[in-house]
Simulated assay, not measured.
Amino acid sequence: MAEHIVVIGAGYAGLAAAKLAARWTDARVTLVNERDRFVERVRLHQLAAGQRLRELPLADLLGGTGVELVVDRVTGIDADTREVRLTGGALTYDRLVYALGSRTDLGVPGAAEHAHSVSTAEDAEALAGALRTARAVTVVGGGLTGIEAAAELAESRPDLAVLLVTGGRFGAALSAKGARHVRAAFDRLGVRVRDHATVAEVRADGLLLGTGEHLPADAVVWTAGFRVPGLAREAGFEVDAHGRLVVDETLASVSHPEVVGVGDAAAIRRPDGLELRMACATGLPTAQQAVRALASRLAGREPRPVRFRYVNQCVSLGRRDGLIQFTRADDSPVERVLTGRAAARYKELVVRGTVLFERHPALPVG
């Protein structure tokens, strides 16, 4: 009797993993996702800015693969009976692919009540609604998500006063040349920056800094940090301090080898110990390698360890500007960058390429 592989989560890594498992193994594959649509998470700042995104039904993306789609919410996992509990029932598994992704961490006082995020389509749509009557918006977080959101909002709404607040030095993860270009783009778009600022509380009318200073805003966008679901910890799987599934060099759980972790919800390390950051760029190639390792195990072969190297970071600065920050293999920046319209086109090709990959996940990446 064929084994049953259940994949939970149909983000970039989970959808690819389900299709590859159906292609590379003889197992029966079931994909569980809370929504019936694939969400281009890397475009959600565009949705928040009022732009329309294409509809990508999961049924269409799974057509002809043999993967069974179950649209439901996962409420728990019983590791002893190998059962995934859903709001509408339960599924038993022989192998589980844990791909539940991440969401924005709204742990700062007042953030859950008063801040918006761009981690789900519903979050981005709610932000777009709040911005219809807003005149001033503050984006918290100086990482790539915060930079992209601030630039997109400023370009789409020239009447909107946009402020970016970050706890560290603005552009610290970029090269000097890259940081200068982002700063110049912000100056052109009218985005103000407040760095080395700690947020103590989010209020209905803005932010309260650790110094006691109040920064007024009609809307607050929170992009500072991410968290993962607690289901892995609750199931008794070994997790790290952030709740991510701890996996070995083949992305199998170190405590439950029948479980494979992919995407943001897994703590993935290279053989040299470098921990991979949460990103689409890491999720796609490692999902491929994880399923290859799983297929090898099922066929009685020794699986290969994950291999991954960074090449660049792609940052959109609105629709007509961008930054491609080239990096060393360990993700540290080098001075070489691509900027302007060429960078915007490059980033757009990369984003379109992610959907092409989801349609054809056996394509080589990374």
Rank of each mutant, 00 (worst) to 15 (best):
V351C: 11
G322V: 12
G273Y: 07
G236M: 02
L56A: 02
A299E: 15
G14K: 05
V193D: 13
V71T: 09
E55V: 06
L96Q: 14
E83R: 15
E125H: 01
M1H: 13
A154C: 06
V67A: 12
T339C: 01
G110A: 12
A151Y: 08
R328M: 05
H4L: 07
L276P: 06
N33E: 05
A342H: 12
A200N: 01
V202C: 09
Q289N: 06
L215P: 02
A130N: 02
R292Q: 15
L62Q: 05
E122T: 12
R320K: 09
T354F: 07
G206L: 14
E348S: 14
H360E: 08
Y12I: 03
L53N: 07
V39W: 01
A287M: 04
A16I: 09
L91F: 06
D123H: 13
G167S: 06
R307E: 12
G283Q: 13
A176R: 10
A179N: 02
F186R: 10
S253K: 08
L208G: 06
R180T: 10
T138D: 01
E152D: 08
S255C: 11
G261H: 08
T75G: 02
G283R: 10
R41W: 03
G171Q: 05
Q288P: 00
R336D: 15
A150T: 12
G64R: 09
V165G: 03
G318F: 13
G225D: 09
A79F: 03
R43P: 01
R194T: 07
A267G: 02
R297I: 05
V365I: 15
A128M: 00
T30P: 08
D264C: 06
G190M: 04
T133F: 05
D248N: 14
G11K: 09
A232F: 09
F326P: 00
F226I: 14
C314V: 15
S332C: 00
L298D: 13
I147H: 01
R359V: 06
V202W: 07
A124N: 03
V202Y: 05
W222D: 01
A172K: 04
G88C: 02
G206W: 14
R135Q: 10
G225K: 08
V220Q: 00
A27P: 04
L356W: 12
A99P: 08
G14E: 04
V74C: 03
D159K: 02
E122I: 00
G129A: 07
G63H: 15
D36E: 15
G76K: 01
L294A: 15
R277G: 11
T92F: 11
L131W: 12
V202A: 08
R35I: 05
E152F: 07
Y98T: 10
E258D: 14
D72M: 02
F170I: 02
S175W: 10
L231F: 14
G167T: 08
E34S: 11
S156I: 07
G263R: 15
T87Q: 13
H242W: 15
A241Y: 04
D36C: 00
H4Y: 01
H256F: 06
V84W: 10
L106W: 03
L349I: 10
L298G: 10
L15T: 15
T104Q: 14
P158L: 09
D60C: 00
G64I: 12
G64A: 10
I77A: 07
R203L: 15
D26Y: 06
A197D: 03
S296C: 14
G243Q: 13
L163A: 05
H256C: 05
G107V: 06
D195G: 00
P109W: 10
G171D: 04
